[in-house]
Write a protein that binds this DNA or RNA. Structure first.
Lengths: 197, 197
DNA sequence: ACAGGCTCTGACCGATCGGTCAGCTAATTT
DNA sequence: AAATTAGCTGACCGATCGGTCAGAGCCTGT
């Protein structure tokens, strides 16, 4: 047995993330699913509707995470706990995040993508408040864009058969080092030390 | 006076990077340049030819960098010097790198992009040799994909009017901390220290 | 004055795009 | 058994895609 609607969502998500929304035709999605183009448009009345359905869970989860985040300022422990939660989000919705990051600007006319763009901006505002230094803003951009890219390119980078737990642990370590506040002496040290090699 | 060919290359590069190769029509490029679609196809006999011309300088420079790199193993000082050189490359060819990173896999049938993919693989092999740990490979992916994303999204991240020197210095600091060998004690320290907050 | 490039253009081509529609089949409901 | 519904399909639509082509305008060298 199979669920055509769910299959189509998964296929569309993979193709949209890999070849781009504009670069993926309904015909191609139908072929991969073993259906006709008409069948795809039976389940989802338009290409845009299919996109919305494919990314909706990621949008919902991201909204939920951000709302819980913005009600309070985080302590150092809370910040680390959030990072762990956010890494789980990245691992589960890597394709969606990759889409938002790389195709968000060019798909602003699609409402659901516009909401995603807004979420990214809000996340950036949390990590790098208005008072943040340029380096801090850069660190956030590198962490977000880099994680999304790396997680969607594991095979080409040569560690696609790595157990999830190991990926998760390493990602938390890397992002923690990258995103810890610049003012934090424990984090300000390394770059200086390394420069002085 | 103006140089239509050079203008078209620059416009095409910006559009290809922002909206994707598949998502950018020749007509749109022509409109931005103030020309007709036919004129674009006069200067570049096909869309693919235009893409090749737009990214060729980046390919050449990248090839040159890699060839100089692969003839020898780098010392710690040499590694830092290379990183500085590579950051300059990233700053100058940010759009091209962003294209290779995000559209490379879906444009393998375009010869010039296939060469770019090969260059990225060779760079990855240099930074994270076969013996490298998973975390090291992840760090490389995050650094490369993150830098390309961040540099192409400065405006949306809120530091688009930052002087280049400051961006350059911060990027070197960040990438140094990210890419220094894991075995290096000077670099292994920070993530542990931060985890222990 | 004339000839030959260089730049540019609109008209046109086949292919593909997203999307509509009438109708087929098999399962479910009544 | 009859009627309805869900799932799916091919034929078809207008728009847009990348690309071709014959020629118009212009500038230069002779």
């Amino acid at each position: 047995m199979s669920n055509s609607s769910a299959d189509l969502r998964a296929i569309a998500l993979a193709e949209f993330a890999a070849a781009g929304y504009a670069g993926t035709s309904i015909h191609r999605i139908a072929d991969i699913a073993g259906l006709s183009k008409s069948s795809v448009l039976y389940h989802y009345s338009s290409k845009e509707t299919l996109l919305e359905a494919a990314v909706a869970p990621a949008i919902d989860r991201m909204t939920q995470i951000l709302e819980a985040l913005e009600v309070r300022t985080l302590s150092a422990e809370g910040r680390l706990a959030f990072l762990s939660e956010f890494v789980d989000f990245l691992l589960e919705y890597r394709r969606e995040v990759h889409m938002f990051i790389n195709q968000g600007p060019s798909l602003v006319d699609v409402p659901v993508i516009d909401r995603a763009n807004d979420l990214v901006v809000r996340l950036a505002k949390f990590f790098a408040a208005n008072t943040a230094s340029v380096e801090e803003k850069m660190r956030f951009g590198i962490a977000l864009g880099g994680a999304a890219y790396m997680l969607c390119t594991q095979d080409s980078l040569g560690f696609d058969n790595t157990p999830v737990d190991e990926t998760r642990a390493a990602l938390i370590t890397i992002l923690t080092g990258l995103l810890a506040p610049v003012g934090d002496s424990a984090n300000a040290a390394p770059s200086i030390t390394v420069n002085g090699i």
